[in-house]
């Protein structure tokens, strides 16, 4: 579990950063960014967010300062989900489903971050 959990958490970030955004594998991500920031900024902003998500995944894998890492992940998800629901709700498959899934994800993140024994 202590080895699988960070792998699972990092995979989610790296998948959505690398595949969904940088590789444009799920164009819905770019459409949401376009709705929020406008078409002109959609591609650059999606690339920046994608790179940051990959780096966040790498941070999880590194095991360095897990609590700070959990705080950043929580803030990132709360910010992104709030903006999505406020501005691009019709582009989401299910707002409630997304919140439930991300709540479970964050529970996993905090379980990983607060465990006393550390094996990255």
């Amino acid at each position: 579990m202590h080895r699988v959990l960070p792998l699972a958490i990092a995979s989610v970030w790296i998948f959505h950063g690398l595949y969904s955004k940088l590789l444009d594998g799920i164009p819905r991500h770019r459409a949401i960014v376009a709705r929020v920031l406008g078409e002109e900024w959609a591609v650059p902003a999606t690339v920046v967010v994608g790179v940051l998500e990959v780096l966040l995944g790498a941070w999880v894998l590194s095991g360095w300062n897990r609590r700070a890492c959990a705080v950043v992940q929580t803030l990132a998800l709360v910010a992104m989900n709030s903006i999505e629901i406020a501005i691009a709700r019709d582009l989401l498959i299910s707002a409630a489903g997304m919140l439930a899934l991300n709540a479970a994800f964050l529970a996993g993140v905090w379980f990983w971050a607060t465990r006393p024994t550390s094996v990255a």
Binding site: D24, P44, V47
Partner: peptide
């Protein structure tokens, strides 16, 4: 290589 990826996405900064 990241710039190449951006170029493919249509980012012409």
């Amino acid at each position: 290589f990241a710039a190449c990826g951006c170029w493919q996405l249509g980012w012409r900064a």
